[in-house]
Computed example of a mutant assay.
Amino acid sequence: MDPHTTASILPLLGWAVHGGILARRLACARRDPLTGLHTRAGWTDRADHLIRRHSNAAVLLVDLDHFKTLNDTHGHAAGDAALIATADRLRTWCGRSGTAGRLGGDEFVAVVRDLAAADLDALTAALHRPLHYDGMSLPLAASVGACRISELPMPVLPDALAAADAAMYAAKGRGRRGSRTTR
């Protein structure tokens, strides 16, 4: 190969490698490194798409109850295990009819095509199963708020998230573990 051809190919090869690295970083930024769920940015793109295509879609917010106590009592590794278990349970519940994400800390989010078909009681039961960790059975609990898109004046994600957030805090405020949907 002549030196001129080599000199012109090397910068292109460098840009191709650089582009691959950037694409990997972007993909990693859209996934939570601990749970493997979508981050807010990655989840929002998918949720917007699902909401536009399915009029029966619902948005859910999930907040682990007493997470700080679990983390402080049993250590950060137990807290991480609780977050991973919650993510796995939420991902399994969503299945192919939705997508889950982690907003940060102990807050999770999901969107499903049809809440009635998805069985919110099954999710609540799954999120309340104890976590078997390091020879112990640690109690897990979560408050879940849900908003059906069809019940909003404008079917947009920010409004659905706000309504699901209000429903989640209403579930927490009742003093018992469970879920609540907007009405």
Rank of each mutant, 00 (worst) to 15 (best):
P3S: 13
T5P: 09
S8D: 13
I9H: 11
L12K: 06
L13H: 06
W15N: 11
H18S: 13
G20T: 00
L22F: 14
L22N: 15
A23P: 03
A23I: 02
R24N: 08
L26C: 13
A27I: 08
C28K: 13
A29Q: 12
R30V: 06
D32P: 03
P33C: 09
T35Q: 07
A41K: 11
G42T: 00
G42A: 05
A47W: 01
H49K: 12
I51M: 07
R53L: 09
R53Q: 14
H54F: 07
H54I: 03
A58G: 12
D65L: 12
D65P: 04
H66R: 15
F67C: 11
K68Y: 10
K68S: 11
T69S: 15
T69Y: 15
N71W: 09
D72I: 04
H74P: 09
H74W: 13
G75D: 12
H76D: 14
A77H: 02
A78G: 06
L83H: 13
I84H: 05
L90G: 01
C94W: 01
S97T: 15
G105D: 03
G105V: 06
D106T: 11
F108N: 00
V109H: 02
V111H: 00
V111L: 09
V112Q: 00
R113T: 14
D114P: 12
L115W: 07
L115G: 03
A116V: 14
A116S: 13
A117L: 14
A117G: 14
A118Q: 03
D119M: 13
D121F: 06
L123E: 00
A125N: 12
A126V: 10
R129F: 10
H132F: 13
Y133Q: 04
Y133I: 04
D134S: 03
L138M: 08
A142D: 01
V144D: 03
G145D: 01
G145R: 12
A146R: 07
C147E: 02
R148S: 02
R148Y: 01
I149C: 05
E151I: 08
M154N: 07
M154V: 09
V156L: 01
D159A: 09
D159R: 14
A160D: 00
L161H: 08
A162L: 14
A164W: 01
A166H: 08
Y169P: 08
Y169S: 07
A170K: 01
K172N: 02
K172Q: 07
G173C: 06
G175K: 11
G178A: 03
S179D: 12
T181D: 00
T181A: 04
T182K: 15
T182W: 10
